[in-house]
């Protein structure tokens, strides 16, 4: 169990102010129907965001275009991350920190980043974290997490020593919550989880979770891939916005051996292209299928988790209306059929 403190709205603004002193603080702000995380804007008007922002956490750990030679002056703190963002850390950490080689650039940012997350109080229509076994509130991976009890009352969960030290160093001390509030947190959490699930189940019922890997595996030759890919314009937006998509390519800088790193997309033709022109996935449908195999077959096998956290960002990003929930539920139906 985390240490949990009872705080007021004004305390939470104080916390952000202090973070803004020690870190390059990025925070979520409402823009239209969405939240965007940026450095700009007025901190004093800040609200707890209702659901995830458009930017996934990977944007802060792995910049879209990264110059390995540039050194960031200040570590980053992010406010506005949600359960689905923190779930994607399992995938990113596995890729970038495990094995014989750590990625030194990711490791450095991961280590220094301050994560201030919060419980979802609402959801986007595309949210389906519950269909994949996740909850709309963070369970781990945060330094601090914020839970809204009422318009003025919040609970601050302290997840790490880093979170604890930050509060201490800034003389921010709050009183512990009592068991009555603890109970209230659980009720609030159960209610939002039920609400998210009720909506998500319309697209992909949570009860099908354990059938997903098999459905992707066994429908390798299904017509679904070609049908769905016919609407894909190969823009790569789904992989750009995805918090668990981690692929990149290296660019050699002009006149040197130094490098830039840029996000890559397995949907693009160039992705699997081998020198000499051979391409094992020359058709778009093969590349679309590959994305699902990676997320629902590869990651469950190597890491025992999906390479998708149900954030729904790709659903919103796709201009061809390709919907990951729909594909998954169709695959399951297809498998049952055959």
């Amino acid at each position: 169990m985390f240490t949990s403190k009872l705080i007021l709205k004004s305390d939470f603004v104080d916390i952000l102010d202090c973070l803004n002193q020690g870190y390059a603080l990025f925070y979520a702000q409402k823009s239209g129907q969405d939240y965007n995380i940026s450095k700009a804007g007025d901190l004093s008007n800040i609200e707890l965001p209702q659901f995830r922002a458009s930017e996934p956490i990977k944007s802060f750990l792995l910049p879209a275009k990264e110059d390995f030679d540039l050194v960031e002056e200040r570590p980053i703190a992010v406010f506005g991350l949600k359960g689905c963002d923190l779930s994607s850390l399992a995938v990113l950490d596995y890729v970038y920190l495990e094995g014989d080689y750590k990625d030194s650039y990711y490791a450095k940012r991961r280590e220094s980043m301050f994560i201030f997350s919060s419980d979802c109080t609402d959801f986007k229509e595309s949210c389906f974290c519950t269909s994949l076994g996740y909850k709309p509130y963070p369970k781990e991976g945060f330094d601090l997490n914020l839970i809204k009890l009422s318009e003025d009352e919040y609970v601050l969960e302290i997840g790490t020593d880093k979170g604890n030290m930050f509060l201490k160093n800034n003389n921010l001390s709050f009183k512990n919550i009592n068991s009555e509030k603890q109970k209230k947190i659980q009720d609030i959490r159960d209610a939002i989880a039920a609400k998210v699930q009720e909506n998500a189940d319309k697209y992909l019922p949570a009860s099908l979770k354990d059938k997903l890997s098999q459905a992707v595996r066994e429908n390798y030759d299904s017509q679904i891939w070609q049908d769905e890919a016919s609407r894909c314009v190969e823009c790569g937006a789904c992989t750009v916005v995805c918090g668990s998509c981690h692929c990149f390519f290296l660019i050699t800088k002009e006149n040197s051996f130094d490098k830039l790193r840029s996000w890559d997309s397995c949907l693009l033709r160039s992705y699997a292209l081998v020198a000499g022109g051979a391409n094992p996935r020359s058709h778009l449908y093969e590349r679309l299928r590959n994305r699902f195999i990676k997320k629902f077959d590869f990651f469950p096998k190597v890491l025992n988790t999906f390479g998708c956290t149900g954030c729904g960002r790709c659903v919103n990003a796709c201009i061809g209306n390709i919907d990951i929930r729909e594909i998954l539920s169709n695959l399951i139906k297809e498998k049952v059929k055959s």
Partner: peptide
């Protein structure tokens, strides 16, 4: 089609 060489880039 190896690129990063260390199991990160996905290629």
């Amino acid at each position: 089609n190896m690129s990063c060489g260390v199991g990160k880039c996905g290629h």
